[in-house]
């Protein structure tokens, strides 16, 4: 069974949201989906950069009312 989880890192600055995502990724299983919420402006570009570099999968990335919602699937 794959899980879905929200990682709420709003109101923290770089690299807080990324580190929070990574901490949660480590505790997740392959196939799980994580949705990162971030108000840090750089997250929209920087988090996908990390996800692609490390080899996971970006499912969606959008900014809603000033909050980045980045959905990631743990691929390995």
């Amino acid at each position: 069974m794959s899980d879905s989880k929200i990682v709420d890192a709003r109101d923290t600055f770089c690299p807080g949201p990324l580190m929070e995502l990574i901490r949660n990724m480590k505790q997740s299983n392959v196939g799980d989906t994580l949705e990162l919420l971030s108000t840090d402006e750089g997250s929209g570009a920087d988090v996908p950069e990390w996800v692609n570099k490390v080899g996971h999968e970006i499912l969606s990335n959008e900014k809603i009312d000033g909050v980045w919602h980045i959905k990631i699937r743990k691929a390995k």
Partner: peptide, 11 residues
């Protein structure tokens, strides 16, 4: 610390 944490977490 920012560089160390991001670089380390990226492998």
């Amino acid at each position: 610390a920012m560089i160390a944490s991001v670089a380390a977490a990226t492998g």
